[in-house]
Design a protein around this nucleic acid. Structure first.
Lengths: 140, 140, 140, 140
DNA sequence: GTGGTCTAGACCACG
DNA sequence: GTGGTCTAGACCACC
């Protein structure tokens, strides 16, 4: 089965980007193979109870990145392109730095104990199905 | 020497928030002690070459969070309270939600294993001197 | 009929706060139910013949207090939460401090006996449907 | 002994007004009789650790109201004027209405239980030395 | 001198 | 269409 989309309307990251990101991740992790197709704009919009324009915008972004190709009258299909290069550990850490800082900064300001932040992080990671070390980070 | 403010006008995070965050961090790290005062709205605006209103907005946010107190006609002063116990736990969790989501989203895109994120978080928290760095949250 | 906003430009309480307070009361009294939306920033500004920024500021305050949620591109919607358990008890007390002082100051000037103030407070609280009107606080 | 002044620098009501109000109350309640003198600007400023200008301003306000008279080189003296007229109960209630509404509005927004507000009110009244019914409200 | 409020008008991202 | 951000410049109260 294709994908399980999850969007949070309250988030600061726009919905169209949440959708696009989820497709990117799925592709990067091999959950969505080359040649597979995305759900139609209309059906996904219906499923997520959002405006079809929003889904369309997400798809456009993916198409612009050549991650997906529009086949007239048939839908959007995952291209073979491997867009997600593999990062070294130090590179990953470097890239995580900024959002991490943002999180910690907020946590400090709120007076969160460290355990609270870790637990919240844990829940979030699990929610997204992040598993443990070795099997990960190599593009599945 | 008071503080060295830096703002990047191109960032997606608004300037008023950049300013506020820098103060928050300075306080958290003890660079700005209780009783010290912030630069005046006008002077900081001049220094950063931005509109005084923008600085004022940043300061209002800090005052709202009780991190700083306005003394009429004298300026804004850092309050004594170390860590504000202003919000309930559930509210704190609600408020970390967004930056957390940003972090996790990035981490997933990069293929970080859960432990890596937790460790990075831990280092950061310790760096900022957050209570209870402990051994928690590593078991994803 | 949505709401009837009234603001007095001459008052010492700023307009943005007058607006925010009216929404708060409307919500508290159930005149504005969960899920309902506020008038748009621009339309309310037009209706009140004030600057949209002023309305926006009022709305931001409400959003900050989680009384209302912004749905991008759609407007501000009243959240479900009845009474926000956002603040800790000590923070709540700190926040009533100022209006309390104003009330007591006035009461003293007028020579109100303590019981009179308590009774008036009680009536008001009951009027707004605040929990636990009970028999409390009368023994000055 | 003259008076015990209490000012809170964090309050929204300006310090000069807090001082003036306290004199007004003292006169109204007979704690300060005609002919008695106020502490000197300098000494009161010192005692309260505030700017002498602030005390001077408070005194000016009182002088403007003819509650007190400046005697060159000697100080400020309470005049015989009875400035505090006696209010009927309904009049008192009417005048208390607005600040009361402000308090309740804030309390509601914060989710304070009624008891919390009553208790806070009680503490405040006691702090100001408000005693019970009958002996009050008649200008002592 | 300080910060607070408001206005006018502009630009941007999102849906 | 929605709200968010920023700028420019004004006025006010307070110290």
């Amino acid at each position: 089965m294709a994908l399980e989309f999850r969007i949070s309307t309250g988030s600061s990251v726009p919905m169209y980007r949440q959708i696009a990101d989820q497709v990117r991740r799925a592709v990067a992790r091999g959950k969505l193979a080359a040649g597979e197709c995305l759900p139609s704009v209309r059906s996904l919009a219906e499923q997520l109870v959002i405006n079809p324009n929003t889904v369309a915008r997400a798809y456009s972004e993916l198409a612009k990145d050549r991650l997906v190709e529009r086949q007239k009258g048939r839908g959007m299909f995952v291209t073979g392109r491997k867009i997600q290069k593999i990062y070294t550990r130090s590179e990953r850490l470097r890239r995580i730095e900024q959002p991490l800082e943002g999180l910690v900064s907020e946590a400090i300001c709120l007076g969160c104990p460290a355990s609270e932040v870790h637990e919240a992080l844990d829940r979030k990671l699990k929610l997204w199905g992040v598993v443990e070390p070795s099997t990960e980070g190599k593009g599945a």
